[in-house]
């Protein structure tokens, strides 16, 4: 094992859906404790990249190594590997037939085989972390989008992941609810969680991320410190994208 182990290491990753090649050779790494934001226009492949990290999408070719375990090895125990990787979805994907507490305990009980008391204690700790200790008896449908997303974060955290993946976690939220979720994520970053975040929230990327990766057309165009990629982009494609995102009313049509 190399002295510095990467939390995530991706080499020459390709992914095609039929004849459409979405990822055209991606190489990148995330180190333990790092917060990496992936930005880019829609259709650039950033969500697919994220979903390849826990193999929700099967890569066409290339290697994905998470916590030293090669997931693209066909004999890898994906279920075991996914326990170490939390994922938060754009559409929250809470289990609608379970209460908030059940949502946060079910995988602890069934996957990690924790006892009921222990699972509930850990669930309450994590609900408290996301500021929803008082909602444990509610059903997802009774919560706002921002609350649902924070429950989803607590659900992932309850598994004690080494790495958290966020797939556009605030894109489905009303604007006034975005802040609650971003605040939770920022707190998580400050506590030292390794995070890979696909997002359109440039302010979050600039303030919280250690690194920002700009993707376009299935390749990584620019990869560097947040201040550099967002503050002083080198490539024309990055500049044009940032202009559109940061100043949408003055976009060249």
């Amino acid at each position: 094992m190399s002295p510095v182990r990467h939390a995530v290491e991706i080499r020459d990753l390709h992914k095609s859906f039929g004849s459409l090649e979405v990822l055209k050779g991606i190489d990148f790494t995330v180190d333990p404790g790092q917060v990496v934001c992936v930005i880019g226009p829609s259709g650039s492949g950033k969500s697919t990249l994220l979903r390849c990290v826990n193999l929700l999408e099967q890569p066409t070719s290339g290697t994905v190594v998470v916590e030293g375990l090669e997931l693209t090895d066909r004999d890898a125990d994906l279920d075991a590997a996914r326990r170490r990787v939390g994922m938060v979805f754009q559409q929250f994907n809470l289990f609608p037939h379970m209460t908030v507490l059940e949502n946060v305990t079910i995988a602890q009980r069934r996957v990690l085989r924790r006892g009921k008391t222990e699972a509930e204690r850990i669930a309450r700790e994590n609900l408290d972390r996301v500021g929803l200790a008082d909602k444990e008896g509610s059903y997802p449908a009774q919560l706002s989008g921002g609350q649902q997303q924070r429950v989803a974060i607590a659900r992932a955290l309850a598994m004690n992941p080494a790495l958290m993946l966020f797939d556009e976690p605030t894109s489905a939220l009303d604007p006034e609810l975005v802040g609650d979720v971003l605040t939770v994520m920022r707190k998580l970053a400050e506590e030292g969680m390794t995070m890979l975040v696909v997002t359109h929230e440039m302010a979050f990327a600039r303030d919280v991320a250690d690194r920002v990766v700009f993707m376009d057309g299935g390749v990584i165009v620019e990869d560097g410190p947040a201040a550099q990629v967002i503050g002083a982009p080198q490539h024309e494609r990055t500049k044009s994208f940032l202009r559109r995102v940061l100043d949408p009313t003055h976009t060249d049509v």
């Binding site: 279920d79 996914r82 326990r83 979805f89 994907n93 079910i106 996957v111 992932a156």
Partner: peptide
């Protein structure tokens, strides 16, 4: 997404 969420939790 329900299956994906469950799988991503290691089920």
């Amino acid at each position: 997404g329900q299956m994906e969420a469950a799988r991503s939790l290691g089920m």
